[in-house]
Amino acid sequence: MSATQALRERAPTPPLRPLLAQTGAELYMTLRRGETLLLTLGIPVVFLLFFSKVNVVSTPGTTPADFFVPGILALAVMSTAMVSLGIATGFERGYGVLKRLGSTPLGRPRLLGAKIVTIVAVELVQAAVLLPVGIGLGWSPGGGGMPAVAAAVGAVLLGSTAFAGVGLLMAGTLRAEVNLAAANGLYLILLLLGGMIVPISKLPAAVQDVAKLLPAEALSAALHATLGHGSAPPVESWIVLAVWAVAAPVAAALTFRWE
């Protein structure tokens, strides 16, 4: 009896080991998926080169590189935090992976933690690729110094949280295939309305009013200010980003269905 009980006494799992292993697996899968690499690195790099070099979109009051580098960085954040995360999570839900993980000691906080670390890691890779390309294209960060960089990083973190919330909101409620289409569709809409490639001033006034309420436009406005002009982001960008960064994850958490 005492022998059996001794056997049954279990040492707790070290709390970091599951998180590290899960993060490693998430990173491995993210970087091995061709379509993810195309979305998070290929398209932003091609867009940055194409629009900076080919004068299809005029950028009044600024050089092409100074406009497109911040805009494409915002696009890259959206690709990683919303589209890549959302599609992958939707399929994991569809394949029953999330359900299966629910019966292991991994737990939701560590699963979410692994996904957050993965997003940040991919964004660092994106920055490491896009910023040198931008510099090569003649981008000059606007001379805002450390305050501008800090504000840009803050805006990226808020924007990532908001986009991740939107991605998970769809992933947790839609069928995997529908979620795939919806995430790609939303990506296109936000790309066009987000001031990332097309300056928002070129949109009709009514569309501009709507676009300014979207997290895509708020993030790209904040990055244009900090990394293009070297100035502080407009207050309304902070407000819009903060509201989305709270509302979208809360909505995702409330509606997420694990199977």
Binding site: Y95, G96, R100, S103
Partner: peptide, 14 residues
């Protein structure tokens, strides 16, 4: 979760 093993009817693997 640490004491119970589960095999779902299908799927559940990356």
């Amino acid at each position: 979760t640490g004491r119970v093993g589960v095999m779902l009817q299908r799927g559940g693997v990356y």
